[in-house]
Amino acid sequence: MKWSRLEQPLSTGAIVLLVIAAWEGGVAWLDIPPYLVPSLSETVKTAIVEADEVLIPASLITLNEALWGLAAATVVGVTLGMLAAESKTLERAFMPYIVASQAVPMLAIAPLLIIWFGFGLAPKVIATALICFFPIVINTFAGMRSMERDIGHLMTSLQATRAQVILKIQVPAAVPFIFAGFKNAVVFAVIGALVAEWVGATGGLGPVIIRALGSFETPLVFAAILYIVAMSISLFVMTTLVERSVIRWLYGATSQSA
């Protein structure tokens, strides 16, 4: 069963249209009040009307928090992943906890961050970083350790120094892994910022949603969700584009994603 290249995007598009039609039609037909479920047109209208005054400024605040958190997670995660791959002692000191942290709901400590760091930028950045950190550190670690044994033997037979092995083999080999981890992290970045906003903030999309919920302005809630999903997806798409060009530059025309 051969698929033409267009068939899949077309059928996905068809399903999206179907969902939109059902949403729009269902709301109109069943006469659902907008405070319960606003129609798509109502949502889009709100997203546009409230854009300049409310949604765009709030989105920029949330995006700023998410990006700083992502940056912090990347710097710390890549550094720690590389150090743990290089040192057995560091690996054994930290990796068990990093793996175990997966079994602990990190979001639950968001309130603690508010107590520690107040209502400013810091707790949001840290909450985002805590969520984004895991996939980055794990993938960096795996990438640095992905060198095959025989390549290690080849380097030994060439009397390569540690620095040569790291720079010429391990780091380039880790790049696709780091991107894979980063892509996982990007999806959670906006969520992390939002959670910290929820627990304590005055600016950002979190408070916008809380206020809208309080006054049953559900169309505004939906519009804010639209902005959040748009931010997450564009971050993901941008990462994928950067990844593709970096991998192409590094690995030639054929991508070798890990």
């Binding site: 939002l194 949603i209 804010a224 969700i225």
Partner: peptide, 10 residues
């Protein structure tokens, strides 16, 4: 990519 937090209020 739709965060939990946003679904929760709905």
């Amino acid at each position: 990519a739709v965060p939990v937090l946003v679904v929760a209020p709905l």
